[in-house]
Write a protein that binds this DNA or RNA. Structure first.
Lengths: 203, 203, 203, 203
DNA sequence: CATGAATGAGAGTTCATTCAT
DNA sequence: TATGAATGAACTCTCATTCAT
């Protein structure tokens, strides 16, 4: 009846991208369960039907968004270690860089991270992606440390601890903001701990 | 006919308790969004209408349950430090105890923890409870360390780190089970790190 | 928002009945696929949600309606044979009675029969009910014929033929109304054929 | 690149034919309501838009297919009677031939027949085609019987009965497969009945 | 003429919440 | 105060049809 058809350009890829980016952003802002497929369609500027041409269901959009997001989350950390291996900087400096970059990245998409954690807990498929992502990051960091001739016993497990401490740190920095904590101190203590963790048995 | 009349006329408090305990358990098992208020009512053995006499909405039940649950989660950790302060055991032994108890507790209610994390991320009110809980635990552990004459600089921040590393550890032990990690080693490395963290500048 | 709650009486059974009767009638009138659950709800004077309290899905309403309908369809035919067995009437009279009653019954719910045939073809579950119904009718008629001392060889198969010829007849009488046929003649020829079929090997 | 260009530039007629044949086949296989126009387009190897160039809507494709199909359904029956008129075979042999051919034909397109019956019940337009088809077949059979010098009183009505009994028979043979019936017996009884029907008042 | 991406109304179904009893 | 049947808006997803290319 009141059908008005918008003049269309955009390639399929651009459209799919828009749905992922806008859709994921919206789901992160409001929560997966609080956003309907109609909301996503409107926000992405497409019709509801169009969504289902590119995605099997609502969750599929979230998963695609999550994959892209997790890539971005890990890059800065891995990059810092690449720098560490290739340039003449100290472990202290790397750790400091990692913490700062991690907070910066998460601040850019703080809701995304929350929603991801949330979905990760509830949905096996998303948990898998999360887990896979950690393994990849672990492997890359491990590789850089070896290049730098740091011989860590139990490197994988230590890097796991490292990643999670960094994650907790940036999470704390962005959300909780407990007035009881001195965040300058928190930064220093976290640094110290992470450096100890990776120093290796060099003596 | 031969209807056996239940002898116990439940008081309001008993009813409310039942809704919280059973309701929270069910929501943790199946996920907040996958359980309806009718399900909760049935599971708790009350009428749907009754729920709305005690709670403003479904979320309110979850929040009450979460509060109770978080209390239990922290007790074992705090208890371990009380033991530490009052008995002659080493820091290594406390840390080991904390890790083991933490895993044990979480295993008992692993779904609860997942669902909590999920809701914590999405709901400010629940996040508040979570945060409040951590502060209380931090204060208590701090107190026990002082009793034991361990003078930690930046104790609050260190205990924060401690709690989160413990949490990550037990989470990893229960869920992810990455085949790439050696969980015996993970245990040892986590122990070492936590001991270092709390050893203080005793020298 | 604009929730207005109607003062309700009616027992559950009355409500379920209304949904079945009105719902089935509507589906028969307009066709199963052309009636929505909202239509049914409105027509039955209940809310959409209410339908799903009593029925698993839309098809379930149709099936219940179909079961009731098929019972009614067969009763007249079976009744005629019961009369045949218990009273002093001729085979010709029974056949005549069956044809007339069958047309009368179908005329009362002619759409129902069409829709049923339609669904029966497309849906295994409904086909089952249809088939089951025929078997029951066959058995009952067989029983009455034996009471009347009519010894039919291959009674089951003959009754099957009988039922289907009656069915075709009443279907033709109600719908097609081909001007090419003389329906008085059609009646006579059908009668004759049916009588021959059941006369048995009395010689 | 090395794109092989299809040498045949299909004419409009070829395209329309393909849509009818493939589309009807698909609708019969899966059911009218379970096949989308996109499915039909894919199956027929044309674009969705193309369909609407040749047909007003989805139903129109089905109707065209139905017309063609019904032609084929009747041919074997009519053919048998042509044989009967032109060759020296008995009525018993014709009836036997008709039953066997009818089952064979229906088996080839059993889904088509089911779907047709279904649509025939629901759609006036399709019912018309069905009805028209029967009249044509009746007329042709009648003609053959006259050629064979079989003077049937009420031939049209008897042939109507004949056609429907044949139809019921082949339907029963293909679908219901009630274990309660002996299908060898069913065949014999149906034969006998049909022969009686057409034997005429030759004495 | 042909295409197929895009449309959006509408399908079946669910469920937090209400309120007559 | 307790009940649970009833509500109906809102959800996810489908598909006949259109029309810019």
């Amino acid at each position: 009846m009141s059908t008005v058809r918008k003049p269309i350009k955009k390639t399929s890829i651009q459209k799919k991208d828009k749905i992922i980016d806008q859709g994921f952003a919206l789901m992160c802002e409001k929560g997966f369960h609080n956003v309907s497929s109609i909301d996503i369609a409107k926000y992405a500027g497409v019709s509801t039907g169009c969504i289902y041409q590119y995605f099997k269901d609502k969750k599929a959009i979230f998963i695609e968004g999550a994959k892209r997001h997790l890539k971005n989350i890990c890059f800065p950390m891995v990059d810092a270690f690449i720098k560490f291996a290739s340039q003449d900087i100290s472990l202290e400096e790397v750790v400091s860089l990692v913490l700062k970059e991690s907070v910066k990245t998460q601040r850019l998409s703080c809701n995304a991270h929350q929603e991801l954690l949330s979905m990760c807990c509830l949905d096996e498929e998303i948990a898998q992606i999360f887990s896979q992502n950690e393994l990849e990051a672990t492997a890359k960091i491990d590789e850089q440390l070896r290049l730098k001739k740091i011989n860590l016993s139990h490197s994988k497990e230590k890097i796991h601890l490292f990643i999670h401490i960094v994650d907790d740190y940036s999470h704390e920095m962005i959300y909780h903001q407990h007035p009881e904590y001195d965040y300058e101190v928190m930064y220093e203590e976290t640094c110290k701990l992470l450096v100890q963790l990776l120093k290796g048995e060099e003596k």
